[in-house]
Nucleic acid binder design. Sequence first.
DNA 1: TCCCCAGGTTAACGACCGCTAACCTCCCTG
DNA 2: CAGGGAGGTTAGCGGTCGTTAACCTGGGGA
Lengths: 199, 199
Amino acid sequence: MTARTDAPTRREQILKEAARLFAERGFHGVGVDEIGAAVGISGPGLYRHFAGKDAMLAELLVGISGRLLTGAKRRLEEARGVSAPEVVLDSLIEGHIDFALDDRPLITLHDRELDRLRDTDRKLVRQLQRQYVELWVEVVRELYPQLAEPVARSAVHSVFGLLNSTPHLTRPGSLPGRAGTAELLHRMARGAFEAAVSP
Amino acid sequence: MTARTDAPTRREQILKEAARLFAERGFHGVGVDEIGAAVGISGPGLYRHFAGKDAMLAELLVGISGRLLTGAKRRLEEARGVSAPEVVLDSLIEGHIDFALDDRPLITLHDRELDRLRDTDRKLVRQLQRQYVELWVEVVRELYPQLAEPVARSAVHSVFGLLNSTPHLTRPGSLPGRAGTAELLHRMARGAFEAAVSP
DNA sequence: TCCCCAGGTTAACGACCGCTAACCTCCCTG
DNA sequence: CAGGGAGGTTAGCGGTCGTTAACCTGGGGA
């Protein structure tokens, strides 16, 4: 992945602020004027960059799901075959945690505002999400073959709930920083999977 | 707890449907006409029972937080002293799972629409939530004394995330029914706590 | 130098939404 | 058997919001 050193485009600024505001107050709770104000322009100026408010949300959600999926696919390619399934799962967990810690507003939107999308966009996002889940399920069942598929899928969803709890850990000074939080979440996720298999 | 055999009042009908709709489409995404239609009356008829749309959300959120807290306090009284801390934690987990499985819309609202409340109501709800968390933290630290308090609190929040994932397990036929789901979640929660303590 | 377009601005429209007003209609009670 | 309140109804007001229209402006090529 090539590092971004250039300044963010106006579009990117808008998306970032829109994500923050949508996460804070909900899609319907934010007006276009507020989004504009957050990037220093006013309401209708946004329409030079996006077809409408819906389009911003759609681009955000498709972007999230897409990046989660492609990131996971990449990690799987890199690790599979050359590593034990344990290591592959660790890599998936690590990737999800990185995302949850670095893009909290997006994590929040991701399972909160999906139903506000137009049919076609919603189906696309759901498909990406489903692929992401199935990818996890495969890896989990490779590591714990005794786990029935529906149980594995439920376990994966529950671990997502655990990892996505980062927005609630916002109280500052509560933990030894990002690294400590990431390590704690990682251990807990592994422990949850372990416990899912025992009778 | 005395069983309710009498029919639900109109107020209760309204609250139930409002919870469902708010959870599905967000507070701002639901109109009073829709809430009315869901209980067979039309829009402004709701104002015979509630001061306004905000009041419905407030009553829902205060009710949720209150019931969670009082339920936990009751379970703690019943179990504490006479049981090992392990059993007390199990009882807390069981209570939370029951709630998450039986009132999914409320669980969804509970961490999603809090910011839509008037200042005074929001403070009340937050206070109830905080007491509930602290109660868990105490029990967890009783069972795992080597766990530092901030770490224990983060772990509790994360386990809440895990247990509250039930709305995402909606796909029917995915699990062996309610009992199986409850048992799986319970084991995973315990496993997550176990893993939080190891170095 | 001229012009054009990317990227802004403000004004305003139409739709929607929360809420109130005014009115109606049972049913329960004195 | 009157009457009054509980619990509805419809009409409509006022405000907000997403979006469009019309206009402006500065800077980079032909």
